[in-house]
């Protein structure tokens, strides 16, 4: 019936996927509902920019060219992430560190762009407490920004652990799992970029 032959890894599970990887995917499934709630709230509120004389809606103030570039940066960080994973799977620790570092750098550029964008809106008089539309905008993009920032911390921690030798070729999967989280944060931005920024 159950034939389980041990490979050199020696791990046996019922589905053939490691617990950690399955756990991360299950968690990402759950995250869809979290971001779904925030995206829906934004969609519902996006035109409700309050009753004061300052009543521009978020999409009246977008700098689409700027956001397109930062979206592109985040999208490309997915490529560098996946290159880091395939480097560690081949056991190339130096390349792994380089690609992880580039990924973290691209993520930081994206976050800086977001901070700059937020500051522009704040300077124009539109803060988190302005109106339902702006509350929803900042909550959604801010939540995403927090996720990206956590991802950057995870990437930097992974670089540190490769330096101390706690991540090597045998632990390639832990880099892959960090990568899964990173890619997920990236696809959430794919949705936000279209639904929040591009569609008027």
């Amino acid at each position: 019936m159950a034939s389980a032959d041990h490979t050199d890894h020696g791990l046996v599970t019922s589905t053939g996927v490691s617990n950690e990887k399955l756990g991360m995917w299950v968690f990402l499934g759950s995250e869809c509902l979290l971001f779904g709630g925030l995206i829906s709230s934004f969609l519902l509120y996006k035109n409700r920019s309050g009753t004061s004389s300052l009543h521009e809606r978020p999409h009246d103030l977008y700098d689409l060219a700027f956001t397109s570039i930062s979206s592109f940066v985040l999208l490309m960080s997915s490529l560098t992430m996946v290159l880091a994973v395939s480097a560690i799977q081949r056991g190339e620790l130096r390349n792994t560190r380089v690609w992880l570092g580039v990924t973290a750098l691209l993520g930081s550029i994206f976050i800086s762009g977001q901070v700059y964008e937020f500051k522009e809106f704040l300077n124009a008089g539109y803060g988190f407490t302005h109106s339902p539309a702006w509350s929803a905008f900042f909550a959604l993009t801010g939540f995403h920004g927090v996720h990206v920032s956590l991802g950057i911390v995870m990437l930097l921690s992974a670089i540190g652990l490769t330096l101390t030798g706690r991540i090597g070729r045998g632990q390639a999967e832990s880099v892959e799992i960090v990568g899964l989280y990173w890619h997920f944060v990236d696809v959430v931005w794919v949705i936000i970029f279209t639904v929040v920024y591009l569609i008027k």
């Binding site: 490691s18 991540i167 045998g170 799992i177």
Partner: peptide
């Protein structure tokens, strides 16, 4: 180099 030394935020499996 053992598989169950994951520094990810998950845990060692009992299967391991």
């Amino acid at each position: 180099g053992h598989e169950d030394d994951h520094p990810s935020d998950s845990d060692d499996s009992s299967a391991a």
